[in-house]
């Protein structure tokens, strides 16, 4: 059985590399020195955010013991949009484009992490709190942020709105190199930090009581993992924009494909699927749709439809 898994992972890795190669070298017109670095930058952004989102969703679903949930829904995406809309609404679109990129990026990430932190803080103060409660509160805040952004969006001048609209959908087309570097550093630090918790994931998927019984310092581990998830989601959203249902899609595909509970296989699997989906999707957006739609719209669409299919297909009660 184990061998089987290794074969699957290898195949997925090969698929991802093949897609990346096609993406890099397909129809290079003009100067290689110009085209290839640009494409490489996109690939880097995809690997980074795709990996972060896949990892966060996988861990999040394990903590919540539930495969219908994704960390995007706790209001972070909505907050991101609110910040973007607010800046355009108050200062006009020139500020958004002119404002110092790094400052804006750090500010956005900071606000999102702060929001998640306050949310956790308030929620965990009440001992024995149901984690679904935390999520529901997050969602409600998300709806609230959504109402506020909508209000401003309706008032904004249609030309200005186009700027906001660009921010509403993730895009890998003009990722800033500096920000990419900052993100790489943040994520590398996080990855180093989170390694120590990896061994607990399999046990956490048994549920809280079993995990405590088996000696997992539950509250300690779960709180830290949730914070890590919030940081990863914030950084990747601030870097490229929200792709709400990517995580849901890849985590469920990973489960379907791998059919195991071992995170040592599930996590690399979902990261590879995520990268393959994004690179493939980006390729289709560029070549088939010639940029008439965006990758996040397509991923959300496919992810959403696939997910409803999953929910309705299962004959057994699984969740």
């Amino acid at each position: 059985m184990h061998r089987n898994m290794i074969v699957k992972i290898t195949l997925l890795a090969l698929l991802s590399f093949a897609l990346i190669a096609v993406f890099l070298f397909f129809q290079v017109e003009g100067s290689w020195d110009y085209v290839i670095p640009r494409r490489l930058k996109k690939i880097a952004a995809i690997v980074l955010t795709g990996g972060a989102i896949a990892f966060s969703t996988m861990v999040f679903q394990t903590i919540t013991n539930n495969r219908i949930l994704t960390p995007s829904i706790i209001g972070l995406d909505a907050l991101y949009l609110l910040i973007q809309t607010f800046v355009v609404f108050v200062f006009g679109s020139t500020t958004l484009t002119m404002m110092h990129k790094n400052l804006h990026f750090l500010l956005t990430v900071g606000l999102m992490v702060l929001f998640a932190g306050v949310l956790y803080k308030v929620m965990f103060k009440r001992e024995g709190q149901n984690i679904y409660f935390l999520l529901l509160v997050g969602i409600i805040f998300g709806t609230l942020f959504g109402s506020m952004s909508t209000f401003m969006q309706v008032l904004i001048d249609p030309n200005e709105f186009l700027i906001v609209q660009d921010r509403m959908f993730a895009s890998f087309n003009n990722v800033n190199t500096d920000l990419l570097m900052i993100s790489v550093i943040i994520m590398a630090l996080i990855a180093a930090y989170v390694m120590r918790f990896m061994k607990y994931l399999d046990v956490l998927s048994l549920g809280k009581e079993h995990a405590v019984n088996l000696g997992v310092p539950y509250d300690y581990v779960v709180k830290r993992l949730l914070i890590v998830i919030a940081i990863l989601m914030s950084v990747s959203t601030a870097l490229v924009g929200p792709i709400t249902f990517l995580g849901l899609l890849v985590a469920n595909v990973a489960h379907e494909l791998m059919r195991t509970y071992r995170h040592r296989i599930l996590i690399p699997g979902s990261i590879l699927i995520s990268i393959a989906a994004l690179v493939g999707g980006q390729f289709i957006v560029e070549r088939v749709f010639t940029f008439s739609t965006t990758i996040s719209v397509i991923i959300n669409f496919i992810g959403g439809v696939y997910f409803i299919y999953l929910l309705l297909r299962e004959n057994k009660k699984v969740w």
Binding site: T70, I73, V297, N300, F301, G303
Partner: peptide, 14 residues
């Protein structure tokens, strides 16, 4: 329900 709503919302957006 809210998850389901936002999934439908993503189809609308598409």
């Amino acid at each position: 329900g809210l998850m389901f709503g936002s999934i439908v919302g993503s189809i609308t957006t598409f």
